[in-house]
């Protein structure tokens, strides 16, 4: 019998506790959480139909109160907190509903990019002969600007969520592929992966069990950055009129609508602009904080 090793076993450190200790995770998380709640609860946040046009209250400043007949014909006072646009739509309602589109675009784009990128990245990193072909193809995709692609897609299909999501996903996928491939290339050389090979673990199981988990933390971080970029690009596309159709309230659409009268009625650009900036800031802060905690390369020593 060998000499027993009696060194005491060290306790386990909790990732969750580390996350809650990071200020940027907390602030970013609170902002993103608030936006999700606003988007989800939009109909109950004292909003009106965001598409409702009322010519009698066009271009009113924030805080304007008008008396309007409701569906039953009763006269009720309505306060336009953020004012109205040139068609007399309530900007407050449009901004609140606009959060839905932004968050949906951000979430779907990051999820789709990560799933596709993860698959291609694992293949490129593990199947050596496919690597060169796949990566040159990805380099080609990366050269396509999202805005040009959106214009092309809109002219082929019609403007809408689908075209916007595809236009943003295509240039983002190669970035995820590069990230996953680089992780796979370094992890496959790790002794514990080689040990798994020598104990006869089949390759698919090997990738799933030993390689894949290492990509999760960096992908969560990358996902938040893609999400922030997607929200921003969606707003740009909508602002340029090649994104979501103008009747659907998105922050980009609201700003596009208010562009002509910006000098006189800045509320059209101001409020969606603030929401957009705060959301992107929140998502980016969350991503930064997650990276500091999850990415071992950024880990502080000690």
């Amino acid at each position: 019998m060998a000499v027993a090793d009696t060194t005491p076993v060290r306790p386990r450190a909790s990732v969750l506790r580390q996350l809650l200790r990071s200020t940027s995770v907390i602030i970013g998380g609170l902002i993103v959480g608030a936006m999700v709640i606003i988007g989800a609860l939009a109909p109950w946040l004292d909003t009106r139909d965001p598409a409702e046009v009322n010519p009698s209250v066009r271009n009113k400043l924030p805080g304007f109160t008008a008396t309007i007949r409701d569906d039953d014909g009763n006269k009720v006072p309505v306060t336009y907190r953020f004012g109205t646009d040139s068609l007399g739509r309530d900007i407050y309602s449009r901004v609140v509903y606009g959060a839905r589109v932004s968050l949906i675009v951000g979430l779907t784009v990051s999820l789709i990019s990560i799933v596709i990128g993860l698959l291609i990245g694992l293949i490129a990193g593990y199947v050596r002969w496919l690597d060169g072909i796949l990566m040159r193809f990805m380099d080609g995709l990366m050269a396509i600007p999202a805005i040009l692609l959106a214009i092309g897609l809109v002219s082929v299909f019609r403007a809408g969520l689908f075209a916007v999501v595809v236009a943003i996903v295509v240039p983002e996928v190669p970035r995820v592929v590069r990230l996953v491939r680089s992780i796979v290339l370094s992890i496959r050389e790790e002794p514990y992966v080689e040990s798994a090979i020598t104990v006869g673990t089949p390759t698919p199981l090997l990738i799933f069990r030993h390689v894949l988990p290492n990509t999760i933390a960096p992908l969560i971080v990358q996902g938040t950055f893609i999400c922030a970029a997607a929200i921003l690009i969606e707003a740009i596309l909508s602002f340029l009129g090649i994104g979501i159709p103008p009747e659907i309230p998105t922050w980009g659409n609201i700003m596009a609508e208010g562009r002509t009268l910006f000098r006189v009625f800045p509320q059209n650009i101001l409020y969606p602009g603030i929401f957009l900036a705060v959301t992107v800031l929140g998502v980016n802060m969350l991503g930064d904080g997650l990276r500091d905690v999850l990415d071992p390369k950024m880990e502080r020593r000690g």
């Binding site: 790790e190 002794p191 514990y192 080689e194 040990s195 798994a196 090979i197 020598t198 104990v199 006869g200 089949p202 069990r209 030993h210 988990p213 290492n214």
Partner: peptide, 23 residues
């Protein structure tokens, strides 16, 4: 090769990298 893999086992140099930290 797989049936023969079990006959040969290897212990690596770096004890900090030879076990999957997540398992």
């Amino acid at each position: 090769l797989r049936p023969h893999r079990k006959h040969v086992q290897i212990v690596f140099q770096d004890p900090y990298r030879s076990l999957n930290p997540r398992r």
